[in-house]
Amino acid sequence: MDAWSRLADTFLNWGYIAEVLPTMFSYGLLNTIVLALTSGIIGTALGILLALMGISRNPVARWIARIYTDIFRGLPAVLVILVIGLGFGPLLNELTGIRSPYPLGIAALSLMAAAYIGEIFRSGIQSVDKGQLEASRALGFGYGPSMRMIVVPQGIRRVLPALMNQFIALIKESSLVFTLGLMSRERELFQIGQDFAANNGNQSPLVAAAIFYLALTIPLTHLVNYIDNRLRTGKEQKHEPDEAAAVIGKGAHA
């Protein structure tokens, strides 16, 4: 066997790929999606809370949000997952009887996602023109209702693409829960690929996992671009002739 066919066998051995596919389809894909989706949802909820604290007029709330964000954005993901997943294991077991580190993996991913998502929301909300708050308040809305009904919805709309990117990152980062030593049925795409690869001394199962990841992330990436484009062109100003002005202008001196 020459070098090329050996390489081809290492990465594209169809036999191994066919062997690993049913496992990936039956629960690997599902676990990856569950990990990414639940931590995405929890992270978004916590992120909105952090963003609101971050723009709050209360300095203590701002301070807490700042420290939280700095810590969770400043640490390597694998470290956070290990510390939370292993460190809180005994406590979780004592309180709920759950032995699996799976929920703790979700918790760790959520806590990190919250820090990033919080910053995305905060910058989005703060990018809303301050005239919006002023106009709402001038109508007679209080500060809280103005933020809730006028400013925050605009800020959130504007960060949808960034939020989607964060979700794509979560799909990829969810692979790091393998460090917690999950039970067989709890394994996600990467770990299934890695276990098969290690058992057979062949990298093709990892290539299979890669194809799964790309099948998830590439369409999402293009969806992000599409949303981004639509948000951008939606803002485009279309000038129309001010026909009604002429009617009203009649008889008035300007």
Partner: peptide, 20 residues
């Protein structure tokens, strides 16, 4: 102050309509 502002209408240089 919120109730006071309901009694005084205000129009701005930059219109400040709610774009959404």
């Amino acid at each position: 102050p919120d109730e006071l502002r309901r009694r005084i209408g205000m129009v701005f240089q930059q219109f400040n309509l709610f774009p959404h």
